[in-house]
Design a protein around this nucleic acid. Structure first.
Length: 594
RNA sequence: GUCCCAAUAGCUCAGUUGGAUAGAGCGUUUGCUUGCGGAGCAAAAGGCCGGGAGUUCGAAUCUCUCUUGGGACACCA
């Protein structure tokens, strides 16, 4: 990478200046060139002169001059001093050379080797299988799938997993709801259970079962029927969800059953391990996880009243803590006789999280194991991280992404939605209106930390305003140019036998700008892979498209000299490669016509 | 009460390991077409980066604090 090369050259220049006596002796700081915000300032810039001003006891502008003077002449870049900065500008010849490198790599352009073939997992979706996929789940799966694409491009062997919550009490409630709707479908008067699922999806599933299986479940013992219908219902719902997600270009490698953690005995082993480490304590007849093994004190682990908080304030103040270290987690319930209704259920949600994290990282070897969670799970983040620490899993192996929920606007007012109440907006309904590409783009267009309002009224008129069309249109236009160039033989290969060999030449600012944008792609992939923030793709896609549009406006291809036509067609091709790759990473299509 | 997230242009949002003059889309105003897709391009207007303090050569970015808004804090999932 040229950036590393420049770093080395700057460091070398400083050392030489010290040897020559132009700079006093001091310890070299870590030098690192960066990308200037203003493109006029060059492609890379070093700020090291300002960092050295104090130890060198010289004005920074003077230091910049000394360093720049000692950087040898090079074919790839030029060096200039601007104020206190040492700037590097890639030469047109080098940029042209890089265009050829992009063309040579084709679809592999943008791939990097951050993962070095290691195993990574992205677990996303994972909603309770108690209803069809909602728009809320949509943000989860689009973010998760895009991260999976990114890690794959970053050199990881990636597995995409859905965690099936098939072990909780919600599943029992769901089973009861299916049973009621099933009975109703067969003409039997049966009320929905308390807090049952009211959605049409449950009715649909129950209807389907009634048609396929007849009335045989009505003759079984009720408890047995509820369980059987719950299982069948979950299978049907999952089938529907899979179908919906396939429309979004999302597929999974594995569906992991929560219940399997308990039937396999892994959960029991983990609890045993933690008990031996003294990290599981008994209190009030229940079993608790306590990261530092501290005993459970009264009031911990449950919601306290304002009075209790006020009283606890009078307790002795602990000495100053190191804020960089996470506080040990002191109380999460693992198992209690009050919560186990029957053997089909796992003790608590957190009790499953412990063996699940172990299974991902230690048993299956994923590093990182990425979790994509909605903000309703934010309180569980420290718990899972604490469990990972207690189990001795390596730092950074468990990565949890929390995304903000989507809110909905209708007639300018916020609408509340819930799966249980059955008024949730389904992904299928939305993509029937917008198409899968626009849906994915919208879901990726904002940082996961930002909640955004989905305006239902704007849904239909979002066509021209949606930036997704700008990007896809740009791609289609490049393809159109290539088609035209071929059909109309802009380049007569017979007359210009040399034109297919290298010797590309670019000098127009719009050409050079576009090349620089294309060359940024690997850095964007690295950024997303490291930060796990996929929204950077949308700004990058727009930037590339914008650079191409400017190039398209300023640099005519048709009718130019053969060498220019050739060079510009090659550049357009490179832009198409970068844009298509970005769209693919986002899980979108790159249409050749619109 | 504790914890998490947010606050940047009229609106919706970017802003990478702290760097030079703060960025885009939409909206507003005004230009651009004898030629490759005008779903385009160019220009203008629009900012105490929520307030305050600190660290630093240098802060939208880091630390502390305050304000405002959202969320999470069950032997629920």
């Amino acid at each position: 990478m040229i950036r590393d090369h420049l770093n080395a050259l700057v460091a070398q220049a400083i050392r030489e200046a010290q040897t020559a006596g132009e700079l006093p002796t001091f310890d070299l700081p870590t030098v690192s060139v960066e990308r200037p915000r203003q493109p006029e300032m060059g492609d890379y810039a070093s700020t090291v002169a300002m960092q050295l001003a104090r130890p060198a006891k010289l004005p920074p502008a003077k230091i910049a001059q000394i360093i720049a003077a000692r950087i040898p002449a090079h074919a790839q870049f030029t060096v200039e001093v601007s104020g206190n900065f040492v700037n590097f500008r890639l030469t047109p010849a080098f940029l042209a050379h890089e265009v050829e490198a992009v063309l040579a790599r084709g679809e592999a352009w943008g791939n990097i080797d951050l993962g070095k073939g290691g195993k990574a997992q992205v677990e996303h979706g994972s909603a309770n299988p108690t209803g069809y996929a909602t728009v809320g789940t949509g943000r989860n799966v689009v973010v998760g799938d895009t991260l999976a694409n990114t890690l794959a491009a970053a050199g990881y062997a990636v597995q995409r997993e859905w965690y099936v919550n098939d072990a909780g009490s919600q599943v029992r409630v769901f089973g009861g709801s299916v049973f009621a709707r099933y009975a109703q479908a067969l003409g039997v008067d049966e009320p929905l259970p308390e807090r049952g699922y009211q959605g049409e999806d449950v009715q649909e599933v129950a209807q389907l079962i009634a048609e396929r299986e007849g009335d045989k479940f009505l003759h079984l013992p009720r408890e047995e029927a509820v369980r059987a219908l719950g299982r069948m219902g979950i299978d049907l719902v999952m089938e529907n969800i899979r179908h919906t997600l396939a429309r979004l270009n999302i597929r999974y490698d594995n569906f992991f059953s929560e219940k399997s953690l308990w039937t396999s005995g892994l959960a029991g082993e983990m609890i045993e391990t933690l008990s031996q480490k003294g990290l599981i304590v008994e209190h009030d007849g229940a079993m608790w996880f306590s990261e530092d093994g501290s005993p459970i004190r009264a009031g911990q682990g449950k919601r306290r009243t304002a009075e209790e908080y006020a009283a606890s304030e009078n307790e002795e103040v602990e000495e100053e803590e190191d804020k960089s270290k996470p506080k040990p987690l002191q109380a999460v319930v693992i198992r209690s006789p009050k919560v186990i209704a029957n053997e089909d259920e796992r003790p608590t949600y957190f009790a499953s999280d412990i063996p699940y994290a172990w299974d991902k990282v230690h048993v299956r070897g994923f590093h990182p194991a990425v979790y994509v969670w909605g903000e309703d799970h934010q309180a569980d983040v420290p718990r899972v991280l604490a469990a990972a620490r207690a189990l001795g899993l390596p730092d950074g192996a468990v990565r949890i992404i929390i995304y903000r929920f989507i809110t909905f606007l209708s007639a300018g007012k916020e609408v509340r939605m819930g799966k249980r109440k059955g008024n949730a907006l389904l992904i299928d309904d939305i993509i029937n209106e917008t198409g899968a590409d626009a849906f994915r783009y919208i879901m990726l267009s904002r940082s996961v930390d930002t909640k955004f309002a989905f305006d239902l009224d704007l849904l239909r008129e979002q066509n021209d305003k949606n930036p997704v069309y700008y990007v896809q249109y740009g791609h289609a236009r490049i393809c159109s140019i290539e088609r035209k160039a071929e059909e109309e033989s802009w380049l007569d290969r017979e007359a210009n036998p040399q034109s297919t060999t290298s010797n590309l030449h670019y000098e127009h600012p719009s050409e050079l700008m576009l090349i620089r944008k294309i060359l940024e792609l690997p850095e964007v992939v690295e950024l997303v892979a490291k930060t796990l923030q996929p929204h950077h793709y949308t700004t990058y896609a727009r930037d590339v498209t914008q650079a191409f549009s400017k190039f398209y406006e300023d640099c005519r291809i048709k009718g130019s000299a053969p060498a220019v036509i050739h060079a510009r067609l090659q550049l357009a091709r490179a832009a198409q490669i970068a844009l298509a790759k970005t769209l693919r990473l986002m899980g979108m299509t790159a249409p050749e016509r619109m």
